[in-house]
Design a protein around this nucleic acid. Structure first.
Lengths: 338, 338
DNA sequence: CTGAAAGCGCTTACAG
DNA sequence: CTGAAAGCGCTTACAG
């Protein structure tokens, strides 16, 4: 009981009374085919429900019409948005999307990189601790790749990033502008690109104000719990800051909940700001002031950049892109500066 | 300037002084190879950084070691969780994952189905308005496929689903048990499987209580805005219900916000419950009572089911699975029944 | 245990 | 414009 044989190009050729070469040319839209022949072939092919075998085609064309996305995770608002942008942009170009995520460490990422090889025409890579050397060591030079959210210029591959630094800088300035001065920062995990950039933005704002010595940095790891912990630490601190800027919304929310639980009034006694504008930011009380990045756009642009790479093989062009962020001022920080 | 030739099985054979057949057998772990030969081949292959060409292999084995997931969307907490479960389970089995989503209508879904053909060994399909006929018409009979969140038994393919009906039934009973009787239901989009099932659960609870005539159903479309609209309608209603059960959390939150904005106290004046347990449910004030489904598990089990299908070709086995839901009682509905 | 050979289903120079 | 043929890189009976 073998599987029913799929219809191949030979079957179509036979039915149409032409060679397989003509079928191939007709179906692939080559010029050198009579309209009449093409019409007959197209008609028969569809009647036979002919579907070219992708493996055979890939074998000879060396193209898969597929791109791969290697991401640290898939769940959560950030990745959810990112992958939506990627998926849409890939579909628009008729590209299939292979995904791989949840890589705990560099070894797993390397394995994922290798396993994508040969199955994709190009790769989108985001790794929080991305090491350009990892890519170079595990990817053939010829494979187009685009890196997301890593330091621009650190890799020979085109890199696109959210302007985490600029967003954090703008938020810190905003907090200054509404009258806060003792602004604590709850940091994200050290070594994580976005976390480091946000911290740098915070620090630069203090430096620009000539008060870098007054920066107060608390440890965090992007989890709500670490935000709570920081919130309790602040509540216990006799020199309590008058504002907190957390490196992401989850920590800001944890901090807010902890502080509110300890009886502090927000924003009058202490203001709170986050980063990401996750959906939940609108629902906490008071609603969270935060920084919004256009993440789907990052994904979309990354695909566009990758597609360009794939077409112009070798000519690694396209200026690095840094997508600006936007301040979203809500109730948790007092009134806006304007 | 042609691309650098990749190393093929021939290169390995030549370097090892054996035939390509032996290389193939050695690398694929067949028994009939001397340990010494195998060792030499493996060594040389890795030294040459040999990577079998997947297209060539697929062409002959008729396997891609890839599964496809066709989903209505990718963003949002639900799909985020679902795809996480799918990705993890696929990885565990060494299967690649091809995704396709954002299909506005049946035509686009059909196109996605066809385009996956030949690129995958099996398919995971979730379509809110899934029509078994659509699958049959666009998929070769031989392609293993598993359907998620559709009515069990309506397709010749194995189907797994969240117990939306049971969850809604349980929530409605819970609301009865804490003393509510005039419980309105904000429905989701008609025709959407989950929405319909949840409504049915609500109705069945009323029927079981012998008061089906007292059911109050308001229209909604799963959006926060439709929840707000329903909330305002209730606020204006002289015969205001004493509890609202929304078919999803987004609508429940919209309704809660609208009602709170109109000065109603929750849960004393009106209780509110949702469905899904999205992260935001914990952050609204008061925190939302809701129903939680183990969505990642649905994805994981669907992959397991698909993998079984793929191995035992033809023997469509595996009893239909319905994953139970769990009540999450928070402050928005008054005290728990226990 | 090992090799020579056929063949998977395509595409593309090369002739005509 | 069309066809015969080579070849993409593998795997797998079939012999030995």
């Amino acid at each position: 009981m073998r599987e029913p044989m799929a219809v191949t190009i030979k079957d179509v050729a036979k039915a149409a009374g032409v060679s397989v070469a003509s079928v191939s040319r007709a179906l692939n839209g080559h010029e050198n085919v009579t309209d009449a022949t093409r019409a007959r072939i197209v008609d028969i092919a569809s009647r036979l429900r002919y579907r070219p075998n992708d493996a055979a085609r890939s074998l000879i064309t060396r193209r898969t019409r597929t791109i791969g996305a290697i991401l640290p995770a898939l769940q959560g608002d950030f990745f959810s948005e990112l992958i939506r942008g990627i998926d849409l942009a890939a579909r628009t170009r008729g590209l299939h999307l292979l995904v791989s995520s949840s890589h705990a460490d560099a070894d797993e990422t390397a394995a994922a990189l290798r396993s994508m090889q040969g199955r994709v025409d190009g790769l989108l890579v985001m790794s929080p601790h991305v090491d350009p050397g990892l890519l170079d060591a595990n990817l053939p030079d010829a494979l187009p790749a685009v890196i997301m959210n890593a330091r621009i210029g650190h890799s020979r591959h085109p890199t696109l990033a959210i302007d985490d630094h600029g967003g954090a800088l703008a938020m810190t300035r905003h907090l200054f502008s509404v009258g806060h001065r003792r602004i604590a920062f709850i940091a994200g995990p050290t070594g994580n690109f976005a976390a480091d950039e946000r911290l740098r933005g915070y620090r630069d704002a203090f430096a620009a104000a000539g008060i870098e010595r007054e920066a107060i940095v608390l440890a965090g790891d992007f989890s709500e719990q670490s935000g709570r912990t920081a919130g309790h630490a602040m509540a216990d601190d006799p020199q309590r800051p008058d504002a907190v800027f957390a490196a992401n919304d989850l920590m800001a929310i944890g901090c807010l909940l902890a502080l509110a639980g300890r009886g502090f009034t927000i924003p009058t006694e202490i203001a709170i700001a986050g980063f990401d504008d996750v959906p939940a930011a609108r629902y906490v009380t008071p609603a969270l002031t935060t920084v919004r990045a256009r993440i789907a756009e990052l994904g979309r642009n990354a695909v566009a950049c990758l597609a360009a790479e794939m077409e112009a093989l070798g000519s690694s062009s396209s200026t690095p892109q840094v997508l600006p962020c936007e301040l979203v001022v809500r109730a948790s920080c007092g009134r806006s500066s304007r």
